[in-house]
Structure formats: C-alpha cells, structure tokens
Amino acid sequence: IRCIGVSNRDFVEGMSGGTWVDVVLEHGGCVTVMAQDKPTVDIELVTTTVSNMAEVRSYCYEASISDMASDSRCPTQGEAYLDKQSDTQYVCKRTLVDRGWGNGCGLFGKGSLVTCAKFTCSKKMTGKSIQPENLEYRIMLSVHGSQHSGMIVNDTGYETDENRAKVEVTPNSPRAEATLGGFGSLGLDCEPRTGLDFSDLYYLTMNNKHWLVHKEWFHDIPLPWHAGADTGTPHWNNKEALVEFKDAHAKRQTVVVLGSQEGAVHTALAGALEAEMDGAKGKLFSGHLKCRLKMDKLRLKGVSYSLCTAAFTFTKVPAETLHGTVTVEVQYAGTDGPCKIPVQMAVDMQTLTPVGRLITANPVITESTENSKMMLELDPPFGDSYIVIGVGDKKITHHWHRSGSTIGKAFEATVRGAKRMAVLGDTAWDFGSVGGVFNSLGKGIHQIFGAAFKSLFGGMSWFSQILIGTLLVWLGLNTKNGSISLTCLALGGVMIFLSTAVSA
C-alpha cells in the first residue's frame, strides 16, 4: 500500500470489461488503480535517471590570480610587451599612462603600459546536455494484498515479495511487465516523455548541487567559461569578468580578483528545477510519464477462499488518510488461513446495510499462523458509518465519521480527471477507425466523469442509474429551450454510458 502517505494521489477506475487503462505517473504523486474483478494496485514513479550526459560548457565562479607582471614604455618608444601576453592562462590589459620627467621619461606624453596576471579557477559549475534516449524511469508497484503497516513504502525485498514489484522503462524499451506472483502480471506500455523539453534544458552542477536550467539563461551567464570537458589546462574565455584592473600608474597597475560568485548564482537559480546525482547518473524529480496498463493477466487472489471465522482485533486505531479513506490494521487469532476477511461498512448496526467501498479488493489472510496481521483500506461514505470486521458474535466494529460532501468530492474528481486527460493529450485517442474513435470517446468520458459518477451514484443499482439517464434524455427531447435540451441530452447520455461502463 504505497499511496496512503502521498498527498498527491489519483484514483483511476477501469471500465467494466476493459483490459487496459491509461494513467499519468508523476514525481511526488501516486496512482491507485481499481477495476472490477482485479486486485487494487498502487503505482508510483520513484526516480527518473539520466546517463551519458555530455559537458557543454563550464563557468568559473571563484578564481585566484598570481605571478603579476607589468612592462611600460616612454612616449615614442613603441608598445610595451610581455611574453605572458601569448599565454592563455594569463589575463592581460594594455593601456596608456601619462609619462614625463617625473617618472623617468625625457618627453612628456602618453606611454604604453601592459599588465598580466595568471588566472586560476578555484571553483566552477558545469552544464551538461541531456539526450531523451538516455532517460530511465523506475516504477514501483504494490498490490493491496496481505501486507501490514511495516511494509508500507518499503522498497527492500521486492524481489521475493509477490505484493510488490519494480520495473524500469526507457525510450528504447518502453514496454515492461511486472510479475506479482499469485496476482498474475501487469503489463506497462509507457510513452517516455517527461513533459520537459530537454532540447531547451541543461543539467547544471555547482558545488555538489544540481538544477535543470534553460539553455539561453545558461549561455548568457557573465562569467569566465570554457567549452567542452575539462582537459586539465582549460582555456578560459572572458577571464576579465572576475578580474579587475585598478587605476594605472606610470610603471605598474594593481590587479585584484573578485570574490566568489556562488551567492549571486544561487539567487539567479531561484525557482529552477532541482535535481540530484546518483553516482555518474543524474536524478530528476520533475515531469511525468504516461503509461497504458494492460490488466488482462491480472487476477484476484483468494476468490475461492472461505470466510475467516475466528476473532479479529484492531492492532491500531483506524486512521484517516490524506485522501479521506480509512486504513485499518487487524490481527487474526485463527489458524484456518488462508481465508477471506469479512469486512464491510454499514450505516447502522441493526440492518448492516453496506455503504462505501473497499479500496483493498478481496482482502485475505494468507498465513495459517496465529496472530497474522493484515492492513486494508476503505472508502467510507460522508457522515457517520460503522466499520464491521468478522462474522457472528466475534465481529468487531468501529464508529467512523467522514466530513465533507459527495458533491465536493465529485467536483474534485472531475477536475482531476480533466487534468489527466489534458496530460494524456492525443495519445488517449485513436482515429484509425470508426470503432477506435468511439472507443476513445468512451475512454475520455470515463477518465473525466467516472470518479464523479461513482461518488454521486455508486450506491444505486445499474438499472436505477439507466432509468435516471433515460429520464434526462426524455426531458431533453421534450424541452423547447435549446440549451436546457442539449444539457439534459448530454447528461442523460453520459449517465447511461457510465452506468453500463463503470464497474460497481
């Protein structure tokens, strides 16, 4: 259960009878995928790494000078000259100064003066180019299975845990398959586009800190620079940016070097996208990844198990997540596992009318040892309800109150669905055939309105939902006002479609 501690969480529900669903994975976010007769899966884009970055340009932001020398000439005696002028490691300046009897010249006039100092770069920052084909995306998957609280967001041991898996995709191999043991396998067909235009970005490294910066900004930095990788004795261009020549006297000129420019660069980098280094690879934390999940090989585990009949206890007080759902960790005293956990939410304890829904599909106890633990997640209705676990006299209950409203949740879900469709863009549509167009249209309606429909009408039977949709269509056909007619027709059509397409 990876997503319960992530604030940016998206719930995606598969269409009834569908074998695939489109998701948008982004750094700092987590996606929970639910479908009829399929286990619930949490998917998170953990890291995006980039390798084989080529150094484009380096800037010196802290330097020192040494070996200063000057040469001067009297008027009419030609130009002052130093051998160091031809050495690229030196920074030199030529000027004219007033000369006369007082400073060793027989004539009054302008004399030539040249001053040089050896330039040494102490600290530099480097910009590297990123090729999209060198990106690698690491995705962690977790099935809502027989897990306890100690396994949440624990990325170790996934090789031997059938509840978890790690997959890596690249532009050259965008397809992967996550093996989930008894739950089958989940196929991923990803489109490795981060949403960032790397043709316009460089990877900047300064003092063990890293950013993504725009090329134009990078090339306009007014500091000494050299092109390409460091060859040991780089040729620094624009050395004068960190060196200041003071007022010249008759035979000498003082040279000083400016202080470190790291603070000024940090100020200019305010708002830039931060990154990290992992050995020789860069780690990015921006952008998104679009994936199509193929769920035809994914299956529920323990459908044929019998119900657990022994007593359950709450190991922890049920807690609310950031998303309005409830996490419950229970301990089973029996030894008759594997068995299914009898769990439901009810409005009252007399009729036990089921409300809400299970995020953890078909929760089971897989071990036959005593005191096995299991964590599950529920989506309670707004208002008061009861969490009921167990059967008969051994069942345990917990009162729950959820604040908020169904309308607010439906609106929030619609906005999130619209954002998801905007990110998917043209990849969500198939114009290759008439059937493809209608299929894409259905998927689009489901992406945007599916979660809201589930919130508003999830407790009704599909037949009642179709009746309401048919009534809206009838009202649309018999209303003389054009805008009201079109609105009723659209709402009725969407409702009829979703009542037959969205899983219960």
Rank of each mutant, 00 (worst) to 15 (best):
W400Q: 07
D200T: 00
S142R: 00
G492V: 00
T19S: 02
H446Y: 13
Y202A: 07
G28H: 04
A54I: 04
T126F: 02
T231W: 02
E377A: 01
D22G: 08
R402K: 12
K38Q: 07
Q344G: 11
K246P: 02
G78Q: 04
I4P: 02
G28P: 02
V364G: 01
V415P: 04
N362D: 11
N163V: 02
S464R: 11
G442A: 15
V41E: 02
A270G: 08
L141F: 09
E26W: 11
D71F: 04
V114H: 06
K246S: 09
I365W: 08
M295F: 15
H226Q: 12
N371R: 07
T500I: 07
D42M: 12
D426R: 00
G408M: 11
L45Q: 07
K443T: 13
F453N: 13
G184C: 08
Y332N: 12
T309I: 13
N154Y: 06
L441V: 14
L293A: 02
L45V: 08
Q331V: 05
V143Q: 06
L491K: 12
C121K: 05
N439F: 11
K93S: 03
I389N: 06
L201G: 00
A418Q: 08
A311K: 12
L486R: 00
L107I: 03
W217I: 08
M375P: 00
T76L: 01
S385H: 12
A241P: 01
D37N: 14
T414D: 06
A176V: 07
G444E: 12
K480P: 01
V167C: 13
T120D: 02
V24E: 06
E55Q: 15
I466C: 14
P39V: 04
E177N: 08
L456C: 08
K239Y: 06
M421Q: 07
L475Q: 11
L273Q: 13
L467Y: 06
F438Q: 06
L486T: 01
D430W: 11
A229Q: 13
W211P: 05
A418S: 02
T353S: 13
R416I: 01
H210R: 11
V391Y: 00
I445E: 11
C291T: 02
A418T: 08
G182E: 03
A117S: 00
T470W: 00
G432D: 07
S199I: 08
C30V: 03
V46F: 09
W474C: 11
K128M: 14
Q344Y: 01
H144F: 10
H399D: 15
G111S: 03
C74I: 06
L141E: 10
E276T: 13
T19C: 06
L107C: 06
I359Q: 08
H27N: 10
D98M: 12
K281A: 13
G404Q: 08
L223P: 07
S306P: 02
A270C: 12
V97E: 07
L441C: 05
E274T: 15
K251V: 03
F218Y: 11
L289Q: 04
A413E: 07
L180W: 11
Y59C: 10
L491G: 12
P75Q: 02
P363L: 11
H398T: 12
L135D: 03
Q131I: 03
C308P: 05
K443A: 10
G14W: 10
V303Y: 02
C92D: 09
F108C: 11
V243Q: 03
C291S: 08
T231H: 03
M349E: 15
E177M: 11
E320D: 03
A117W: 05
G324C: 07
G104F: 06
D67Y: 06
L223F: 03
A413K: 09
P380N: 13
E412L: 09
L471Y: 13
V256T: 00
R73K: 15
T335R: 10
V328K: 03
G111T: 02
V41I: 08
S433E: 02
K290D: 03
E133N: 08
V97G: 03
G109V: 07
I65A: 02
S440N: 07
H323A: 04
T500M: 11
R175T: 05
F457E: 11
T351G: 12
D22K: 06
E329Q: 09
Q253T: 05
L378A: 03
E136M: 03
